[in-house]
Amino acid sequence: MKFLLIFSSVMRSEEQIVINSHLRFLAACAMITLLAGCASPASRQELVVEETSFGTRHPYSVFVIAGGGGETDATGYTNISNEDLEGAIKESIIKSGLFSSVAKTHDADYKLSVNLVSMSKPMFGLSFTIDMEMSWSLVNTKTGAAVMRESIKSSHTTGGGEAFAAVTRIRMAVERAAEKNIRQGLQKIAGLPLN
């Protein structure tokens, strides 16, 4: 009888250990899934081109509009919102002095439209390479003539040592690729003979 009681007690404690370990495993799985899926959107500040000047100052006002971006879901992929893309381009223009002013309404000398056409979305790996394409068009609002129509492609790779979390490395690659694209776009505009 005493043997049976001891045996039963040992069995119960072993069962409890197994259940506890299962609970810990499930909790860890839930935590990993949560952490792995926590994608964050590209930061507007990281997209701004920190260039003091492109060597040109067009004496005109420009209205900027951006599209093709989107929101970032916590469990989705890092994306660039239209508002952040637009804001970063405007801020880059203001910082560089590329145009005399950035208009808040359509009533400007030029209208710049930038659309995020495509962005690669690598899922696995230590280093992440983001390839991005944006369409840039600049129209003289008085004449309606398109003075620039360019497909600009950019790319950036973040290495495995640049950040611990994969989602952070992806966000960094997206931000750097977008910043490069904005830089190239503004450099092309700087080379245009506007009048």
Partner: peptide, 10 residues
Amino acid sequence: NKATATVDQT
């Protein structure tokens, strides 16, 4: 669900 479209101004 996401569905977007953009058309360039030109």
